[in-house]
Design a binder for these strands. Structure first.
Lengths: 220, 220
DNA sequence: GCATACTTTAATGTATACGTTATTGCAATC
DNA sequence: GATTGCAATAACGTATACATTAAAGTATGC
């Protein structure tokens, strides 16, 4: 059933450790140590590390160990540039696809959840719902490769987003943006979906980069 | 010096075999066989296969072997959608960067090479120069991640492009497009660089997809 | 004291061995 | 004849052993 190989376990364990900060950004870790920690041999750890390298989460450097890649403000700008274009394209394509409201239910639900979370001042719940919104939006775009790239880019900024979550201004503008994007998609207004989401992402990027630079984070 | 590991050798050998069609799209290949062919053990072949999977060139499927991923017309559309957005963004960013003409020399050279190749009716040379143009354009965009994604996407359509190279109409429009993009970048006209390149890519996509569908390629 | 060449060491890259497991072929049954 | 269950097999996932190699430490000469 649960065809969970050791490589899968290593992958998800390492991802968790990276996102939780248990493996700090910039820190190095030997294959042997990680293998011992995870209770398996070097082989699956090594393979997992290679996959994480392909996803830009670590650098595998001969004899220096597996390094957790820190994310600078410039990295953030680069990543958001990519996210902005690709997610906006997905929004436009979703609008063109002519989904009925039933097919947009998940998207609507995540927006409602965000509103509720904002009301309740529950930022963690808000962030989760925000995640769902963006994932669903990209799924509706109907381009699997695009979805994969976006997922990888989002993973790269996950730590930074989590760290800055409580420093940000209340994301009420964000919520109205999501509403607008939703309406544009429902109305099959491709151009508006694109434009609105594009602006939404640019604003998010600006805010995050300013936060990072203001707080002098070397690498998150 | 030449720090060539077996993994590196396997990677480049497999890439060559995939691009040349020696490993046909859709075909399966056992780790053991490839290892024997490349004169090494399974380990480096396996690691190389995992990397190629991350780059979307193969699927590694337990007990069915390493499958060379075929590219359908729909894949082509998806890939070109991504390429169109990201390369156009790169063009815009390159224009904003304010490069001097010396810094744009490589770009200019590749355009000149394309013109010369077209004049000489040397399509292979034209394709090579076209490759250089797009690679350099993306490099000038200054976003390393974007460059990497674009490279991966281009690799995925490489075979299909090579196969259809001699079926295409003479790419003279393509050359004038490149000129226009170059001029926009040199003039630091970000919007025009973006718009021109965007249109250029959309046209290329349309032409390729029509070719693929007309000739009923199942997967290239 | 400093630089250089050598030794040592430790981590990786690769090969190989082995247990596990999906698939294939075959036989028995309906 | 088709189907199901079982046995055989072959490929993979993983562990481990070994070779390679870069880095660190050490001794030597100046």
């Amino acid at each position: 059933m649960g065809a969970m190989s050791n490589v899968d376990r290593a992958l998800s364990a390492l991802r968790d450790m990276i996102f939780s900060g248990q493996l700090a950004p910039g820190s190095d870790h030997l294959e042997t140590e990680l293998a011992a920690q995870l209770g398996m041999s070097r082989t699956p750890v090594r393979e997992a590390a290679l996959m994480l390298q392909a996803q830009g989460l670590v650098d595998v450097r001969p004899r220096r160990g597996i390094r957790v890649r820190p994310v600078s403000a410039q990295d953030m700008r680069d990543i958001y540039d990519i996210l902005t274009e690709l997610e906006s394209l997905a929004a436009a394509r979703a609008a063109e696809a002519g989904y009925c409201s039933a097919e947009l239910a998940t998207l609507a639900k995540s927006i409602a959840d965000m509103d509720a979370a904002l009301e309740a001042d529950d930022l963690r719940a808000w962030a989760q719902a925000d995640d769902r919104f963006h994932r669903e939006l990209v799924r509706l775009g109907g381009n699997a490769r695009l979805a994969m790239i976006v997922a990888v880019m989002r993973d790269q900024v996950r730590r930074a987003r989590a760290t800055t979550l409580f420093m940000r201004p209340k994301p009420s503008k964000s919520n109205t943006d999501h509403h607008t994007v939703y309406q544009a998609i429902a109305a099959q207004d491709s151009a508006r979906a694109h434009a609105t989401h594009h602006a939404h992402r640019r604003a998010a990027c600006k805010m995050l980069v300013e936060l990072l630079e203001k707080h002098q984070f070397h690498g998150l």
